[in-house]
């Protein structure tokens, strides 16, 4: 099955515009993690800070453009992996190895039609 691993962390730990020294540290960890994932990795990327986010909202058929992320939360979506795993337990054990710098959450979502 294919699963999306959505990485939520408090982006402030990476400094303004994710330019702080912490970003070097986490990138290094992601490179190692990618190697370990090997063929299980289908795709993935880190995202710029929510200060760079723009949201297009549809309401009653009308489209409006807004500055900022879809929702203001304590932890923000900061990156994702798309993986191929035989089942949820395998996806969970990959998610447990996924590096986060301090506190954070990895949401595991199976893809529609991703069997």
């Amino acid at each position: 099955m294919q699963y999306m691993l959505l990485i939520y962390e408090d982006e402030r730990v990476y400094g303004p515009d994710k330019n702080g020294p912490a970003i070097q540290e986490i990138v290094g960890k992601h490179i190692a993690f990618n190697k370990e994932l090997g063929a299980a990795r289908v795709g993935g990327a880190g995202l710029k800070a929510t200060t760079a986010a723009t949201t297009v909202r549809t309401k009653g058929g009308a489209k409006t453009v807004h500055d900022g992320p879809f929702a203001e939360t304590k932890e923000q979506l900061g990156g994702y992996y798309l993986i191929d795993a035989p089942d949820l337990d395998a996806a969970i054990s990959i998610a447990k190895k996924l590096p986060v710098l301090q506190d954070g959450s990895i949401e595991i979502r199976p893809l529609l039609g991703g069997m």
């Binding site: 089942d87 395998a90 969970i92 054990s93 199976p110």
Partner: peptide, 18 residues
């Protein structure tokens, strides 16, 4: 069904938690 919970016994590394 949708999340893909395995129908097999847990793997050794998951055993304690499961």
């Amino acid at each position: 069904a949708e999340a893909g919970v395995p129908f097999d016994l847990p793997r050794p590394e998951d055993w304690i938690e499961r």
